[in-house]
Design a binder for these strands. Structure first.
Lengths: 196, 196, 196, 196
DNA sequence: AGGTAAGCGAGACGGTACGTCCTGTCTTTTT
DNA sequence: AAAAAGACAGGACGTACCGTCTCGCTTACCT
């Protein structure tokens, strides 16, 4: 359960208002100039309410940027090829979008600084992503598309990394057919080779 | 030529002292707490001397962290498989190491903020990397290992992204056989499929 | 009567518990760090209960620090000289003591800020003090020790101010014979001169 | 000497600009709402420049409010009676005035909180005041107006305290003839009695 | 040989953000 | 309706860092 039964309960609307404020500010001014004071002001909220919920700006922004429905459902398209495309599209939808695109580099930098719980939040996201991946691979095994399951971290790194590199390292424009379609052939091939 | 002929010439030892100071500090305290003041103090140098050479902390750290011999020689091992492993090893050697590992996320965040010349430095690195990649692919074409040259940005994203994700997103430990060897099979397969 | 008959009656012990908590905290940490939250916590009381009784921290602390028996009885020693010593002792007992000594400066600062009713509390205290003073002077007139009654505010300022300055401005240690005895001769002389 | 010979020297105008800003703000909004940020903004100065010179808001305001010429010259009027009036006028001029009047209570409260150096600043002022007092008393001894020198702290408390109480405790309006003239007769009488 | 332009270490400067703290109010549930 | 608990808005404080500027000094080039 989330908090004690005694005392005034946390106000419901605040989380939503903050999430909205953060996303607006990220889009308008980017991560660095998305100030905690500005967030509080735009959300009509005191800074104390923010720090009562999140322990730093980084965690706050992370929580605002990662929606619950991100990576909501593992796709099942009937073929490994289709599933890989689906996973890539999910990853892209999580890493793309004006807000995340602005936030991610700063977030990576700030979360790394924080003692341990950098893990807490990031892992939460990655763990779910990896679970989807395992499911996709297991389905392919069941279908006979793979003879054995490749190392999951390797596949994870290739899929997640390819999307991330495209968006944040190479800073290429997203190709007309969609990023997932551009990356899927090669990464599908990689998985097939690893699972032979 | 780098500057006017008049006046006192720039002192020679400073670049080396600064590079050393930055690398020590990155390893000891990470990027965020690797302060410009701390760098200057440790290098026994005034801040003005730093800003005379580099236009921001990010460029300074970037310059200190990227050695000239990074990606020095394009590997030629006789096979695409071997060349891919070589490129991956080069990428790893550029992204790994205690300093870069600490610096990279912060660097990505700060360079993104800076107006245009974020490009200047980052691109310089990426452009060379991409040239090596083109050479590797062309060699494979010449050998008949590939029928056509895959989209270079796609290959680039897969290779660079896989290493980056392993080190900075998934934060996995480097496997005993080496990261390049772990990633090479799948990525080699991907290139083969794309070049068919 | 002070409040409606309906609903739960105000709990009796609260005033005493708060007074005790305030005095403990004043002694332990001083006025500024004697937080309203700390008072409530130590008294085992909600903050609302405090603000239902007093309209600000300053009034709360003031009420806790001024005992009812402060300046309880106007001394009558038979001589002006003795009466002055008595008044001084009363003033000292009101301004001295570990709690008041810690509280007074902060109290003065905060009460001054508050709109009008700063007066309400402070005056209450000063008015009673002044009444005692008038009585003392009138007795001296009746005895023939004074020919005319000196300006009361002047006398009041001299008596109260001397004690306050000793304790809070000069921060001298209280002399062995007692502060009242140290100050009485001079101030008695002053009154005599003024009443000649 | 005021600072090291190396490095950029402290800018001269800042102290004056800050002093002016503080005095304006004290008069306009009082001590509590005379914010450090507001001071910095009005003085056109960064907060760092303030905290480089003074270690807290209280010390900053104190320094701005106590001019060097406060209590500049010990008066010599030829008679103790005149000298006492002069000292009282000096004290009043130090404690009165729109700024000091607004600042003093808050200052007393905040300086008391700070560890030791509350002393540093306050004492500086009191020590000079006491020195003047000693000189006045010694002159009176030399003239034969006093047979022996009264306890200085007692006299100090009476003079300083009377003015302070008038202005900050009783909050009486300053009488038409001037506060010094109203208080001088009684306090002169007190000193005479003590010095008999 | 001396002037001068640019370099140098040191450190102060304006600006900006962070995270903490505290006050006075409000909102729960319980009594 | 009052109680304890504790969340809320607002706002100040003091710290930290960045990139710039200003000292007094030093070093090489160019007259």
């Amino acid at each position: 359960m989330t908090h004690n039964r005694r005392g005034r309960p946390r106000e419901q609307g605040i989380d939503a208002a903050v999430r909205a404020a953060v996303n607006e500010l990220l889009e308008e001014v980017g991560y660095q100039r998305c100030t905690v004071d500005a967030i509080a002001a735009r959300a009509g909220v005191g800074k104390a309410a923010l720090y009562r919920r999140w322990k730093s700006k980084a965690e706050l922004v992370f929580a605002a940027v990662v929606h619950d429905d991100t990576l909501a459902a593992p796709p099942d398209t009937g073929t490994l090829r289709g599933d890989v495309t689906g996973v890539l599209a999910d990853i892209q939808s999580a890493l793309d979008g004006p807000q995340v695109r602005n936030a991610l580099p700063g977030l990576l930098a700030d979360l790394r600084t924080e003692d341990a719980p950098a893990t807490r939040l990031g892992e939460l996201f990655l763990v779910r992503e990896r679970a989807y991946l395992v499911e996709v691979l297991d389905r392919a095994l069941a279908r006979g598309e793979l003879a054995r399951r490749p190392e999951v971290p390797v596949v994870h790194a290739m899929l997640l990394g390819s999307v991330f590199a495209w968006l944040h390292l190479l800073r290429e424009t997203v190709p007309p057919g969609g990023l997932a379609d551009a990356l899927a052939p090669g990464l599908y091939g990689a998985i097939i080779v690893l699972g032979r």
